[in-house]
Design a protein around this nucleic acid. Structure first.
Length: 856
RNA sequence: GCCCGGGUGGCGAAACUGGCAGACGCACGGGACUUAAAAUCCCGGGCCCCGAAAGGGGCGUGCGGGUUCGAUUCCCGCCCCGGGCACCA
């Protein structure tokens, strides 16, 4: 039984070795606050190669959630790793601080949006610091401050000058809950993206638009070059841009006797089927309709009905499902290819906002037209020879069971001079002939629409435009920027733009004529803010321009961007557009903002996204309070590969905490100072060699994870395995009996372990680094290199199979030749027993793995 | 309907180019230390069958086929879950 004295000693030693994350993390957190330069990027003349790693900036909604923690833990691990790899790393953070959520929350909390937002930022910034993310806070960007949004306004003026920003009356998506307009991108299944239960309505308003469609083709083409982007995201953007090739064809209206257009232009991707057109279908909103039906109240009422059906479907989000209805207008149009008179109809399945809002209806060769023609008894005329898959076209009795036949792998019939041409050939010739004849041409349309950026809301960047009674629309002169968003504004939801009520702000003088003018009272969509913030990070306080050319030229493109896949379309396509505009303004040289994109999986709770309304939000604060930041960070990386969705459960977090505790103890109980004497690998004991081998294998695994798939869950697992191996040989590391290995080896192992741990658990790594007697900045230490020779196993266990079934295992030298392995395997007693009386066909040897003996 | 992911023990997952399925961890069971507990450490483990045990046999990566000496991995056909697009002419 130990005496009291001894027991006290042991207890004290144990206390010292106990892992106390709060003491460690507070200590290092305080140091990092005092030395912010530790995480600061060096200027563009740094001798180190640059690396720009960026995580998507958050909304300052109030507090961080686990999705943020995941995003930033991935980015921070990478940033720290790249620092250690010798790069000059830019790793900034900022705040997407304008926007509806902030404003709505401010209304509820009865605090001005600015105050509410800034206090949220302060809180979330403190959370980030507590979590130990290595951000260069000297680069911080806050989009709701005039220093930043003045450049939004500046960009807007430049775009206006170039005709890229324009104003037009348009039917817009209106969310009654937000009391504002939504971009097409913000409408999800016919509902507001923020109020997923609230159907979006349609209204006509004067809006500002950015001409993103001017860049549609380039946005599409450049996707092919973004090889560092997930294919999924590129496909989503391709679909969103929605390019389709076809032709525009003008149909003359028979007996048109009114002013203006006497033709109906249709867009088709199947001009080769035009001899099969048996009607023209117009969208209920088509502008020519008024002329066609005159003032016949009955027809007007019917059109209104069709329009209403379509709108209701749009609002309900099931545009694809509504029953097709239509109405004959009583008028006809002339098919320019054969002079035939086609009845003009109105149909609820034709959309005004795609193509020209009019189609030629070819029932035999289009699903929708077929359905419609069947319903209304319109003629169905076959002009493409229907064929079954894999069979040649059968001329003669056309098989109507194959209708509608929409394939393009056949021949034309009943098509005048084009009969017997292939579809492909016919499309080419017909488009040419249409152009020659002056009634059409080949054309391309896009699904992508211009970007409506006007918002009837308060908390956003004011659009820098004026309305003068005398001069009309007048841009605010550049020297008058920024147009400051006034404070103390009533932002209740009583409709219209809140800024319109601030008379002293709205009323101003016209810079052109000096007369009275009114300011634009709409503000910009917040996606404008996030479309270029990553450029501003490089020089956030610059007062003379949005960006500094040299600095931008050095840092761009962004080497690695990390964020949620939910931004695959909106944010990332706007950012790409903005980049191209900035390039055309001569501000930057790059055409794309992001070289490599990583889309992390979502953090779910019970299979659903975490959200305040669901009440299933897990706060990182509780985890940090209980286990410390390192545990929280390592756990979220360990729980699943970063690209996969993660259903949050903290059941396994104890294990990670235990692991960090064991790491702490492993070093704390016997930190070995680095000393001069080297060791000779050949003279090491087999145990010591084994430990060294595992060390090098671990370096390789973790380095490979960083260079490849970022499966940091396996990196953490590798560290756990290494620790298990190290603690399996206490005689190597114990103070008293360290004859099993030289101190230099122990010192090397301990240091390397800390370096490998540093990207994942920075607090603990720094503490242990200091404990090892090191005073250098851990982040500037070199990432460990592995030695292939040292990592190689000396002995291997190989499997002996008979007909693919495992029958034995052999431990052999790693240098064994194929022939040796074959002999050893055949000689194994178990193999001999099984082989008895059977015919040996062959033996397949896979060096280092197995021998498979094939018998009959 | 079309286009992407994914489906492996009680759970999170691993196996990266066809070669020992289940590394690592959680939870669980047993043990050590302790007056006791906590903490810590050690051992066990896919499922089923035979056996007191040592050991042995069979089945197993959503389902059904195929290729191969050998398939979680490749091919064909399905099922289920998640995401994106969808009268786009």
């Amino acid at each position: 039984m130990p005496d009291l004295h001894t027991r006290t000693d042991t207890g004290a030693a144990r206390d010292e070795q106990r892992y106390d994350p709060h003491r460690i993390e507070e200590k290092w957190s305080a140091r990092w606050q005092q030395q912010p330069e530790l995480f600061r990027a060096e200027p563009f003349d740094s001798p180190r190669p640059k690396y720009y790693v960026l995580e998507m900036l958050p909304y300052p909604s109030g507090a961080l959630h686990m999705g943020h923690v995941r995003n930033y833990s991935i980015g921070d691990a990478l940033a720290r790793h790249m620092w250690m790899k010798g790069y000059n790393v830019l790793h900034p953070m900022g705040w997407d601080a304008f926007g509806l959520p902030a404003e709505n929350a401010a209304i509820k909390a009865k605090t001005p949006p600015k105050q509410w937002t800034l206090s949220n930022i302060a809180h979330m910034k403190a959370q980030m610091k507590r979590l130990g993310f290595a951000y260069d806070w000297s680069k911080e960007v806050t989009t709701c401050l005039p220093d930043y949004y003045r450049w939004n306004q500046w960009f807007f003026l430049k775009m206006y000058e170039r005709g890229l920003a324009y104003r037009k009356k348009s039917r817009v998506n209106w969310c009654p809950e937000c009391a504002t307009v939504l971009a097409n991108e913000q409408v999800v299944n016919g509902c507001c993206w923020r109020h997923t239960e609230t159907p979006v309505q349609q209204r006509d308003l004067e809006q500002w638009f950015l001409r993103i469609t001017d860049y549609a083709q380039e946005l599409l083409d450049d996707l092919d070059r973004l090889s560092g982007w997930p294919e999924k995201v590129r496909t989503m953007q391709r679909n969103w841009i929605g390019r389709s090739e076809g032709a525009l064809i003008d149909f003359k209206i028979d007996g048109a006797a009114w002013q203006g257009s006497d033709t109906i232009s249709v867009f088709t991707t199947r001009i080769d089927t035009i001899f099969g057109a048996t009607s023209i279908q117009l969208a209920p909103e088509h502008p020519t309709l008024a002329n066609l039906i005159g003032n016949n109240p009955e027809l007007h009422a019917r059109v209104d009905e069709l329009m209403a059906e379509q709108r209701r479907a749009k609002e309900a989000g099931d545009v694809g499902e509504i029953e097709k209805h239509g109405m004959f207008t009583g008028r006809y149009a002339i098919n320019p290819f054969n002079g035939e008179k086609l009845p003009i109809w109105v149909a609820n399945y034709v959309l005004m906002d795609y193509g020209t809002g009019a189609i030629m209806s070819v029932p035999a060769h289009d699903e929708r037209d077929y359905e419609f023609a069947k319903k209304y008894g319109l003629e169905i005329r076959i002009v493409i020879l229907p064929r079954r898959q894999g069979e040649p076209p059968q001329a003669g009795e056309e098989d109507t069971a194959l209708l509608p036949y929409t394939g393009t792998d056949s021949l034309l019939i009943n098509s005048g001079p084009y009969s017997e041409l292939s579809c492909e050939e016919a499309m080419k010739r017909m488009a040419q002939d249409a152009e020659r004849g002056g009634f059409g041409k080949a054309a391309v349309t896009y699904r992508l629409k211009d970007w409506g950026i006007s918002r009837q809301r308060y908390w956003g960047a004011p659009i820098p435009m004026l309305y003068c009674d005398h001069c009309g629309i007048v841009p605010v002169p550049e020297k008058d920027l920024p147009v400051i968003l006034p404070e103390n504004v009533d932002i209740t939801l009583s409709g219209g733009s809140p800024l319109g009520k601030v008379k002293e702000w709205v009323n101003t003088t016209c810079p052109t004529c000096g007369g009275s003018a009114r300011r634009e009272t709409d503000t910009m969509d917040t996606f404008v803010d996030s479309s270029w913030y990553f450029y501003r990070y490089t020089d956030p306080t610059l007062e003379t321009a949005p960006v500094a050319p040299k600095t931008i030229g050095y840092w761009f493109e962004i080497d690695q961007y990390i964020g949620g896949v939910e931004h695959a379309i909106l944010h990332l396509i706007y950012s790409r557009f903005w980049t191209k505009v900035m390039r055309d303004l001569g501000l930057i040289a790059n055409s794309e903002p992001v070289a490599r994109l990583f889309t992390q999986g979502m953090v779910l709770k019970d299979g659903a996204a975490m959200s305040k309304s669901r009440g299933n939000v897990v706060s990182p604060d509780e985890i940090v309070a209980r286990y410390g930041a390192d545990t929280a960070r390592v756990y979220i990386l360990f729980a699943a590969p970063p690209d996969r969705d993660l259903d949050w459960s903290d059941s396994a977090i104890e294990g990670v905490h235990r692991f960090l505790g064991r790491v702490h103890r492993f070093i704390a109980q016997n930190p070995v100072q680095r000393i001069g004497t080297a060791y000779c690998v050949q003279q090491l004991s087999p145990e010591a060699r084994r430990v060294l081998r595992k060390l090098h294998q671990t370096i390789k695994r973790i380095s490979d994870d960083f260079a490849g798939r970022w499966h940091f869950n396996t990196s953490v697992a590798a560290l756990m395995e290494l620790l298990n191996e190290l603690t399996a040989y206490p005689e190597i590391f114990a103070c008293a009996s360290r004859k099993a290995a030289p101190s230099a080896l122990v010192a090397e192992i301990q240091r390397t372990f800390v370096l490998l741990l540093a990207p994942f658990a920075p607090y603990l790594a720094h503490e242990l680094w200091e404990m090892l007697g090191e005073t250098s900045n851990l982040l500037r230490e070199s990432w460990p290199e592995y030695d292939t020779a040292l990592a190689k196993e000396e002995e291997l266990e190989i499997v002996v199979q008979i007909n693919g079934k495992i029958r034995d295992r052999l431990v052999v030298s790693a240098h064994s030749s194929e022939e040796e392995l074959r002999k050893l395997a055949l000689a194994a007693p178990k193999v001999q027993a099984t082989l008895d009386g059977r015919q040996l066909l062959r033996a397949i040897v896979v060096p280092g793995k197995l021998v498979n003996i094939v018998v009959r």
